[in-house]
Design a protein around this nucleic acid. Sequence first.
DNA 1: TCTGCAATTAGACTAAGTCTAAACTTGTAA
DNA 2: TTACAAGTTTAGACTTAGTCTAATTGCAGA
Lengths: 134, 134
Amino acid sequence: MHEINAEELLLKKGVKPTPQRVVITQYLLSTHSHPTADEILDEVKNALPVSLSRATVYNTLKTLVEAGVIQEVVTEPGRSRYDANVSDHHHFVDTETGAVFDIPAEVITPVRATLDERFKVDGYKVVFFGRRQD
Amino acid sequence: MHEINAEELLLKKGVKPTPQRVVITQYLLSTHSHPTADEILDEVKNALPVSLSRATVYNTLKTLVEAGVIQEVVTEPGRSRYDANVSDHHHFVDTETGAVFDIPAEVITPVRATLDERFKVDGYKVVFFGRRQD
DNA sequence: TCTGCAATTAGACTAAGTCTAAACTTGTAA
DNA sequence: TTACAAGTTTAGACTTAGTCTAATTGCAGA
């Protein structure tokens, strides 16, 4: 098994691996917590020897989403979360804590819909909600 | 068939039917456009003979959601939309325009998930995305 | 080394939503 | 009727998430 390397990943996706981008990508690869932009800023600023402004975090997240390195996840009003898991998957949201968990596409039954032919469906996302124990 | 009456609906749900609440509820019952709070404010302010402040729109929407009169729908980053359809249904989002359409639960196959038993699932929502023609 | 474009930055700005304190209803009791 | 209390609405200040701008910094290629 080959360890995921942020710099290689960025190069492969055609994104110039600047220190700020590498560090943000590393952080997202290392967590399953679906952090918000400001959580990323705090984490990365406190833990890593690279200067980082708020604007750069937002710029970088947009760049990474456009390049397909990460995904934007909207599970609650008012702010976005980010996910380095770009494989086909869905989400579970804990309704008490707001915590978000990945659900691989393979563990759910495929959704088939009978729609008016004017709807051209490119895909779908399922969000489960409830409580996650422990 | 009985026409839906906003005032009756509010009473039935235990919400005091003030003029502002009735007018916002009427507007939501009359549209399928899933408006945002500020769209509701504009619509209602221009069309109806009742004064209405931004704070009241936000207060009222929160009250109506808590009472189960309407639903909050989050389909895009940064703002919420509101839906007077509280029956069991899902959504289709046009990726070009952001327009949101209701998809009744009956027209999709039920989603079955095989999850770690720590996930206590209360329900799920499916969001389809693509283009809606015409 | 120079040059020029891309990336980063601080901080002003915007948009969506919340909060606060005052004013306004409304239902009920005197 | 009047008067009170509780609930509702209001304007506008405030907060939060995110965008924009204009100035700097950092590199890759000539």
